[in-house]
Design a protein around this nucleic acid. Structure first.
Lengths: 151, 151
DNA sequence: TATTGTTATACTCTATAACTATA
DNA sequence: TATAGTTATAGAGTATAACAATA
């Protein structure tokens, strides 16, 4: 595991892998705490956000937009449906497809949880000044975009 | 999972959690590929690097410096020992402690793998100009330091 | 034949508890 | 009583293959 330590800065802080892992782990915890009151985690919230768009999407379309595969999608939608945040409906035009739609409760949840997420994010980034935070996000976007570009 | 997608940029690229996860996952893959020829992974290489310092360290001391807990440490040292890169030796002064030391092979491996790691890191950061890459590392260091500061 | 949703399985990581030997 | 090392176990997360229904 990557435990917290009482010691000062470790000797690994020049390693990109170490820094990315730590930052990711820590933000995941902060984010989970912020979203817990709303009964969703980051993955589920991202799904709700995608579903809030104009088009009605099938499971595999949602999966595609989030970079999640369809087998993982099943359990995620199961959870959201169990909590009454989305409903599944067979597409009349292609009966292989499950259309996924937000319920009113899902829309409420999305609004509140999104606000919580934004607050958690700014709080996490608070130790950075505004330009630095923006530069961080821009740099990460560039690196992540590079990934898809190479495919 | 977080699969690669053929599509252009997804709708999630404004989310810090998404960006950190992606960046971390992608760098982990790049790093693993770069280190594979040397028979170590990132964790193991970090241990070798720590052991290259002046003091002779026990398992728990190594674990402390890397932010890994002692139960995880056992298997990591097992692996390194199996590959002949380190040796364990009981501390004569406190027979509870296992001192871990680099073998000559371990020192060789460290040198070569460290070089590969540095190259992989610069290659990963290549899409960023130098200042941006430096700013990214600085920002991550700040955020990660914040974590230990709060403990 | 290919695609969508689904299930099952396996494999990696990590977290926790408990045991031993030493102090 | 506490600490270092170890082992075992359980829980996430994820990757893969295979199946049924549909195209």
């Amino acid at each position: 595991m990557v435990s917290d330590r009482g010691e000062g800065s470790g000797p690994q802080e020049h390693r990109l892998g170490y820094l990315l892992k730590r930052a990711q782990t820590r933000f995941a915890r902060v984010s989970a705490e912020a979203l817990a009151p709303y009964g969703v985690d980051g993955h589920e919230l991202a799904i709700l956000a995608v579903l809030a768009g104009d088009e009605t999407l099938s499971q595999i379309e949602v999966a595609g937009r989030l970079g999640v595969d369809r087998t993982t999608m099943v359990a995620l939608v199961d959870g959201l449906e169990d909590h009454g945040l989305v409903v599944r409906r067979r597409s009349p035009r292609d009966r292989r497809r499950n259309l996924v739609e937000l319920t009113p409760a899902g829309r409420d949840c999305l609004e509140q949880a999104e606000r919580a997420r934004r607050i958690a994010e700014s709080r996490f980034l608070a130790p950075l000044d505004e330009q630095t935070a923006a530069a961080l996000l821009r740099a990460l976007r560039t690196l992540v975009a590079e990934e898809t570009a190479q495919k």
